[in-house]
Amino acid sequence: MPKGKILIIDDESDVRDVLKFHLSEQNYQVIEAENGQEGIGLLKSEDNLTNVGVILCDIRMPKVNGIECIQYIRQEAPGIPIVVVTGFPDTQMAVNLLNEGVKEYLVKPVEKEKLVATVERLVAAGKEIDY
């Protein structure tokens, strides 16, 4: 039985495949978008605003980039925890994003155990708030 819905926003389909592979193994239902614009659109469609448990978001993307996308999501859906998964090991950017309300800043290549543990923790925390 699926544990929850995870939205992956990353412009590289290979990277999405790997993230999806790791999360599907743990029985998460994964939905994907390839840029910020598509991510926001997907988040607004169906019941995703209430059912997406965690958003995994890249930073450097065409059209709407990760920073813009995160700012938007923080306004429209402040309850959904966001995890940044990026190739940039940038401390200053990480601090800024964490101040913006991002829950975790993971640098690729991120280990499967760390990714899964982060998502599990955030999904569990989200449920605690609900009840």
């Binding site: 590289e12 990277v15 495949d17 790997v18 993230l19 190739g87 940039f88 640098v107 290549p109 499967k112």
Partner: peptide
């Protein structure tokens, strides 16, 4: 950034 993206894919794909 340029190296980490393909590296991540290579590691993930081999898994």
């Amino acid at each position: 950034h340029e190296l980490n993206n393909p590296l991540y894919t290579i590691i993930g794909f081999s898994e």
